[in-house]
Design a protein around this nucleic acid. Sequence first.
DNA 1: TTTCTTCTTTAGAACTATTCTAATCTATTG
DNA 2: CAATAGATTAGAATAGTTCTAAAGAAGAAA
Lengths: 131, 131
Amino acid sequence: MKAAARLRAAGLRPTRQRAALAGLLFKGHDRHVSAEALHEEAIRAGVKVSLATVYNTLNQFTQAGLLQQVVVDAQRCYFDTNVGDHQHFFYPEEGTLIDIPGDDIKVSGLPSAPKGMEVEHVDVIVRLKRA
Amino acid sequence: MKAAARLRAAGLRPTRQRAALAGLLFKGHDRHVSAEALHEEAIRAGVKVSLATVYNTLNQFTQAGLLQQVVVDAQRCYFDTNVGDHQHFFYPEEGTLIDIPGDDIKVSGLPSAPKGMEVEHVDVIVRLKRA
DNA sequence: TTTCTTCTTTAGAACTATTCTAATCTATTG
DNA sequence: CAATAGATTAGAATAGTTCTAAAGAAGAAA
């Protein structure tokens, strides 16, 4: 069982719900999901799980470094299965995200972090509009 | 009356509430405010205005290009009086933003926008943590 | 296994930020 | 000054997320 091991390695007890959600999240290629969408998907797939647990699980996975959160606007936040160095295009009309590989994009000239602080993460969101 | 002219130029009827909020927003140096905070500030200053109007006004100002919205996390969104080219440091503990001048920071290697789309805005948020 | 403890899940309530609604009010125009 | 188009208001509604208290499942110990 791959999922269980992955969860255990992250310090998370491999419960039925976590394993099922991990299965949905990490089985194919990288994904950007909202909690609501993942919940619906799980239900459709016959997994018995509550929305609260989906939220808990997504947050735990994020803390464990299995997911990354992408905040796009005040009421839309996605969880990204690609935790590597990369950035995003955002299509406001459809509310979708597309990855920009991290080796293409480069942020330079960043002033050094203020005293006592260090950079945790640099988020770049390129907001698009219809030309 | 500067505020009135500014509003008129933006195609907004210069009402008492808008003028008062514009006064608070644009009187001093650049600011990052939340709707809630601006509302409290207005009330404290003796301006009779509802929270709904503060939201309306901030959104209208944003659409008119007088403000810029900065989305920091799923439940915190700020309005920035600095609409020039610049980016932000974010301190999660205090929930505060600090400007990074736009001529320091540079984003390069951006893939061209997909067909039929163009870049509307590039948001960079540098998330800090205690070292 | 059985039991114990701890962690997890659940439904629904609660909460937060924001937008909507319908009535009232106000700035502008004629 | 009256008419009208647009703005404001309080409070309700909504959306997304977190909390709560009770019930359930996983791991450890015997």
